[in-house]
Design a protein around this nucleic acid. Sequence first.
DNA 1: GTGAAAGCGCTAACAC
DNA 2: GTGTTAGCGCTTTCAC
Lengths: 349, 349
Amino acid sequence: MSKKATLKEVALAAGVSAQTVSRVVNKRPDVAEDTRLHIQQIIEDMGYQPNTHARSLITRHSYTLGVVATGLEFFGPSTVLVGLQQEAEKLGYSLNLILTQELEKEDYRHILNNFGGSQVDGIIWAVPPVGDSRELYIAPLLSDTPPIIFLNHPQVGLSVVAIDNHHGAVLATQHLIEQRYQHIGIITGPSSWWEASERYRGWKETITAAGLAFKSSFVAEGDWTAAGGEKAFLELVEQNHELDAIFVSNDQMALGALKTAHRLGKTIPDNLGIVGFDDYPESAFFIPSLTTIRQPLKEMGAAAVREVVQMIAVHRENQEEYEPKTITLQPRLIIRESSSKRQNPEVHF
Amino acid sequence: MSKKATLKEVALAAGVSAQTVSRVVNKRPDVAEDTRLHIQQIIEDMGYQPNTHARSLITRHSYTLGVVATGLEFFGPSTVLVGLQQEAEKLGYSLNLILTQELEKEDYRHILNNFGGSQVDGIIWAVPPVGDSRELYIAPLLSDTPPIIFLNHPQVGLSVVAIDNHHGAVLATQHLIEQRYQHIGIITGPSSWWEASERYRGWKETITAAGLAFKSSFVAEGDWTAAGGEKAFLELVEQNHELDAIFVSNDQMALGALKTAHRLGKTIPDNLGIVGFDDYPESAFFIPSLTTIRQPLKEMGAAAVREVVQMIAVHRENQEEYEPKTITLQPRLIIRESSSKRQNPEVHF
DNA sequence: GTGAAAGCGCTAACAC
DNA sequence: GTGTTAGCGCTTTCAC
């Protein structure tokens, strides 16, 4: 009982050869029905579980996916992880999880080496690109790694699943314009983040296209946290008395903005319209409830797993490279109180 | 380049035996310094990575921990996971992550079987006990599993790392009493959850000990969500006009309560004191900011990993069982605006 | 349908 | 210090 049963032991107990047991375990058709039933019974009785390591040693695949992630304390990344895990489980894969703290070069090489030894069949890169870090690690990645897919991460010549951050920002800004706000500022994420700059781009293009004023003082940089949002909000309103709406690049910073607006006696949405980004579960319960952009996070995780499993299959059959693919998912606007001027009926001229 | 180098190939290239290379890879002392340097160079050149599966096949340990978790979309569980992963990495272990959706029997057996085959050295059970589910799966666990540790999960005769939920509730309730609130209600989590009932117990004992009124109408059950908190809050205030404080069993439900109080024109903290539980990162930015109980979640994860690694070591040396241990971590009170009566100076008679 | 032999990549035990 | 032999638990190939 204490020691695990092996294939050989099952074979011995069943009075057949190891191969026959192997056939039963792997559901091969070429086993007599009697034999199969008999062996299945013995397997059940002995509580036999095939050793996946021994198996993968010979089959060359582990049915394990390596996931490199970060910021799991936050809603976004952890929701993506849920999507990854659920889809992986559905497709018979398990997940080997690595978290990074710092986003520097040394780290990455180490992680990839690590995956090299642990025989993952594919890698899902769920660490956001910050600054020029992607230039740093792209080179060592290209040779000798299993299929790899990047999440929310522009990569030339590699497969990517991304949410259309630019379009999300456009939706948010357009909505504010439709609500007849005229002077629309932005609180961005850290400028070194790709996602932050995409959202900024969407905002800027939209207000410019609508003929609204663009001033550099309309832009304040936050750090994704509520505290940072508070600080950026103060900067913005102190420097721009005319501002009547702000697109905040995530919900946490928007919460900081909401709180500070409340403290300053600015009425939202009447004095000031606010739209966030992410759709935290709590955002519907902020005071006032927060209009925001919902991202299909679980779907992104699931799509990444599906794609990388595809890549693995192709990689195995033909030795040739898989055609890099970019899958883009669309976010959508969730309208709540923080952006709906009450005295402004929904009339557009 | 495309095919991975093996030990044998390195040995061939270095003109030594496989064994010697193995010694170098495993940092054994009994290798001549010259040989070691030479081999290390070749290893570097060939980009050799030892195959962990082959290794664990023979050493009998995989340096992998199985983690069974759920609710990773939420702050608590995902923060615990961060603690788990960080400590695991520190100790040279990687994580094999399984998420459960439903908390029923079938599921569990399947998961454990799965771990059986994938050669995890230990298991961390991070799924909260709900109802009598623990009775259902405890039996099959006991035989034939690697060392296992439970998080926030009472288990007779097994190792556990838990946060003292009861004490946290005592802290919260005592704080409200010190603030001179007199009629203190509670919004609980689902009664089938162990954590919820522990918090309830702490509240009840504390108000009773203080000689305050206990009425069954002072208790409303929520479902951990903000929407549930809203509903429970309405029940509570409609049925008890005298209520002047509520201990809410988590911050999300507290947020729902805060919003509803605001809508009903109840002033917090003056009309009504609120204390939450969890200390979400956002709780400091709620309106008003939320007094709450902070749990050492990362520490819990880290402690669990340390403990299970201990258990693995003992399990390997002496065949005898490891002495089950219960590690209890203390939460602490974080005082903010939602519980501090302004007109009430801190005078105790 | 079933079995025997060989070997995946590595390390344990022992020889020298 | 270093090499040789054996074998972890499994699947593949090929024989019968």
